Computed example of a mutant assay.
Amino acid sequence: MEIYDISYLSLVACFLLLVIPVFVSQYLKLGIIQDTVVSVSRMVVQLAFVGVFLTVLFDLNNSIVNLLWLLVMLIMATHTTISDVGLDLKKLLVPTIFSFIIGNFLVLLYFNMFVVNLENLFDARFLIPIFGMFLGNSLRGNIISISSFYDAIKRNENRYLYSLSLGAKKHEAILPYARKSLDLALKPSIANMSTIGIVALPGMMTGQIIAGSSPILAIKYQMAIMVGIYVSTVMTVAIGIFMTIRSSFDEYGILKQDVFKSTNA
């Protein structure tokens, strides 16, 4: 099957489509032109860098270098998670990194060993893209779960303290808030799986088909990836909440106020 390349001139033609949202923004006074330009520019620079960098990684295909790059991805994801939810980076850095490692890396190794059946589990062509998909989805889940969990505890502090005063142990008082946060974080992944294929064709499957893979092969990979993403997200958000609890609450079950950035200002 012939593979159709996209020339640089064709990319320019693609970017010309951005005239439409610019016109809509200008006509309706939405004020998104600057944000659009900045976002598109960052996307181009970042993807260009990643394209060159991944080409070098794939050609080198050194297991140690590949794992070091995964570590960089983990650190960046952890920093983004904690920063976006307004919590103290120093207190939650280690437990959040640990949750990403357990929830993503272990699922990735299982995936490469038993699903893709790779001889080299650290093959860059599979290791980095698949890990990126797992990490990106669990990152979103972690932001939702951790943010909603600590916001709920802080917003309902009196009710939470009242539960402790009635004799509830720390994990008993925390469990309703953790359960609600996990539910909020996992609903998008569940909804995404239930509508995939009929409502939407995901990017990975579409890319494989366009690149010449058979639809059946693309579907098998997509099903496997979706299961892996869901499992890694469940593990990451669950471990993320319960690991951060150890450094965020004192021995009496009281939430430490210095966990929040605003209290350190």
Score class of each variant (00 low, 15 high):
48 A>K: 00
48 A>C: 08
49 F>R: 00
49 F>T: 06
50 V>N: 01
50 V>M: 15
50 V>S: 09
50 V>W: 09
51 G>M: 08
52 V>A: 11
52 V>L: 12
53 F>D: 04
54 L>S: 04
54 L>G: 05
54 L>I: 11
54 L>C: 06
54 L>D: 07
54 L>M: 14
55 T>S: 14
55 T>E: 10
55 T>I: 00
55 T>D: 11
56 V>Q: 08
56 V>N: 07
56 V>A: 12
57 L>Y: 05
57 L>H: 06
57 L>F: 13
57 L>C: 10
58 F>N: 06
58 F>H: 08
59 D>P: 00
60 L>Y: 12
61 N>Q: 08
61 N>D: 15
62 N>Y: 03
63 S>W: 06
64 I>E: 08
65 V>P: 02
66 N>G: 11
66 N>Y: 01
67 L>W: 04
67 L>Q: 10
67 L>K: 10
68 L>G: 14
68 L>E: 05
70 L>Y: 07
70 L>T: 10
70 L>V: 12
70 L>N: 02
71 L>M: 10
71 L>T: 14
73 M>V: 07
73 M>L: 14
73 M>G: 03
73 M>F: 07
74 L>I: 14
74 L>Q: 06
75 I>C: 13
75 I>T: 14
75 I>R: 02
76 M>W: 08
76 M>L: 15
76 M>K: 01
77 A>G: 05
78 T>G: 15
78 T>M: 10
79 H>Q: 12
79 H>T: 09
79 H>R: 13
80 T>S: 15
80 T>Q: 11
81 T>D: 01
82 I>Y: 09
82 I>E: 05
82 I>N: 05
83 S>N: 15
83 S>C: 02
84 D>H: 13
84 D>G: 14
84 D>R: 15
84 D>W: 05
85 V>D: 03
85 V>M: 05
85 V>S: 06
85 V>F: 09
86 G>W: 06
87 L>V: 07
87 L>Y: 05
88 D>N: 15
88 D>M: 00
88 D>F: 02
89 L>C: 00
89 L>H: 10
89 L>M: 12
91 K>A: 07
91 K>F: 00
92 L>Q: 02
94 V>C: 01
94 V>Y: 09
94 V>F: 13
94 V>G: 03
95 P>R: 07
96 T>P: 08
96 T>D: 08
96 T>I: 09
96 T>Q: 10
97 I>D: 05
97 I>Y: 05
98 F>N: 10
99 S>T: 07
100 F>I: 06
100 F>P: 00
102 I>R: 03
102 I>H: 01
102 I>L: 15
102 I>M: 12
102 I>D: 03
103 G>H: 02
103 G>D: 07
104 N>I: 01
105 F>H: 03
105 F>W: 04
105 F>Y: 13
106 L>I: 13
106 L>Q: 00
106 L>S: 12
107 V>E: 04
107 V>M: 08
107 V>D: 06
108 L>C: 06
108 L>M: 10
109 L>M: 14
109 L>K: 04
110 Y>T: 08
110 Y>A: 14
112 N>F: 02
112 N>S: 09
112 N>G: 05
113 M>F: 13
113 M>S: 14
113 M>Q: 15
114 F>W: 10
114 F>L: 11
114 F>D: 09
115 V>S: 05
116 V>A: 13
117 N>C: 01
118 L>K: 07
119 E>N: 14
119 E>V: 09
119 E>F: 08
120 N>T: 09
120 N>E: 11
